[in-house]
């Protein structure tokens, strides 16, 4: 399952971020989105726009393409 499969407002544990490209991966690690933390999918923007997620009590936004490379369980 990946992050974009989550229903809006539900939480899951990140299991894999290794498939994302290097630049985005480093940014996500910087912001605390790493394997083992809890994420909550807050919202998705229309027309395939970015998603908004919450990790460690803080919100961030990334593209749906990248979000779909983040494995969760």
């Amino acid at each position: 399952m990946n992050l974009t499969d989550l229903k809006q407002g539900t939480k899951a544990i990140v299991s894999d971020i290794s498939k994302i490209n290097d630049l985005v991966q480093q940014r996500l690690i910087d912001m605390g989105l790493v394997e083992g933390v809890e994420v909550c999918l807050k919202r998705t923007m229309p027309f395939g726009g970015p998603v908004m997620v919450e990790v460690c009590g803080q919100c961030l936004s990334l593209r749906r393409r990248e979000a779909s490379c983040i494995g969760v369980r």
Partner: peptide, 9 residues
């Protein structure tokens, strides 16, 4: 060059 987007809210 692939465009990337990650931003803190």
């Amino acid at each position: 060059e692939k465009s990337v987007f990650v931003i803190e809210l």
